[in-house]
């Protein structure tokens, strides 16, 4: 199981972009749809202190939003 998790909503364009970006880079990830999984949504809000998607987590590091530079730094 991958240590990279992506929190998304189905209607979020940046979530799709983030997922495509990871697929292009060949990065395995778990996806959590926070629109249907309320507990995970709250876990995400607690971890980041933010109510916004997409969120990418790896261990205790996270990136809010689609920011390729920051994502690359975390994935290194």
């Amino acid at each position: 199981m991958s240590d990279v998790t992506v929190y998304t909503t189905p209607t979020c364009p940046w979530c799709t972009r983030l997922k495509n970006y990871l697929k292009e880079k060949g990065v395995d990830f778990n996806e959590v749809d926070v629109s249907t999984d309320y507990d995970s949504a709250m876990k995400m809000v607690e971890l980041t202190g933010q109510r916004s998607v997409p969120v990418l987590t790896k261990g205790d590091q996270y990136v809010v939003g689609f920011n390729p530079d920051q994502i690359d730094r975390i994935l290194q």
């Binding site: 909503t9 979020c12 629109s35 809000v45 109510r51 916004s52 998607v53």
Partner: peptide, 17 residues
């Protein structure tokens, strides 16, 4: 910002259920 303030309801709307 991102702690309730959002510029994308399409993205973040479901988090305000």
């Amino acid at each position: 910002r991102n702690k309730g303030v959002s510029y994308c309801s399409t993205c973040d709307g479901p988090l305000f259920r």
